[in-house]
Amino acid sequence: MENQNAVIVKNLVKTYAHVEALKEISLNVKKGELFGVIGPDGAGKTSLFRIMSSLLLPDSGEVNVLGIDVTRDYASIRKKMGYMPGRFSLYQDLSIEENINLFASIYDTTLEENYENIRYIYSQIEPFRKRRAGALSGGMKQKLALCCALVHSPEILFLDEPTTGVDAVSRSEFWEILQMLKKRGMTILVSTPYMDEASLCDRVALMQDGRILSVDTPAKITTAYAYSLVAIKTNEKYNMLSSLRMLEQATLVYPFGENIHVVSDKGKLTSEELTKYLSAQGMENWEIVEVAPDIEDCFIALMNQHVAA
């Protein structure tokens, strides 16, 4: 059903001097979906977002957004999309109100005409509307940038790392806003380096080194985890890590929140074997905890497969 897709990306390639930023990326985003592109710095997220929002030309490949070929017909797509760049790019010496009015007038509209569309977000910063953008806190800047990206009532939003460097409270407030926009039918593409934000998306693409490692719903990605995973709780993390690193059956050993995760091929390492090994190593005061893999475990496993391949 091609017409259900808001975004179609096919075999996208982008190279800078010696760096292959995007290595034949393909993905589809459905209308009304909240789609996350998740990966570390240097994965290619920003290149992908700039190309999809018609700000950068790819070397080859196709990008179709809302039925429009963005490389040919950039003028029509720009009226229908909102874009929020990773770096705060509003005018620091204009007030909140002046910034929004400026963006509205660029799109030949006014704040009043679109007030209802952004009311939910704008009302949170409206008390400070005379304050210069440069004097706002991180969370407020982010809300202002979102207002500016929404003021012309776009059908699709491209948000490039809106929550990077933002504290956990502002991050969760921002995601609440995205959920609200989604409910109203907006298609949203958002990139982030925070793996824990994956669970807030309908579907995600895990990106690393110019490639997509996996695209699916967060639940399906974690269900497809192909290894066996055990968590060990201990206060002696440093010694425990060194000890587990010497265990042959453990393919990957890494700290994970309060525990240490031990990854092995399915059926290759039982809890009994692990217990026996650690006792023989003289390790004390630890316990095995049942855990299910989360997105970050999957990302680590996929990255590791890729390096090995």
Partner: peptide, 8 residues
């Protein structure tokens, strides 16, 4: 560690 991949 801002922006660094999960393994690194």
């Amino acid at each position: 560690t801002g922006g660094v991949d999960p393994i690194t």
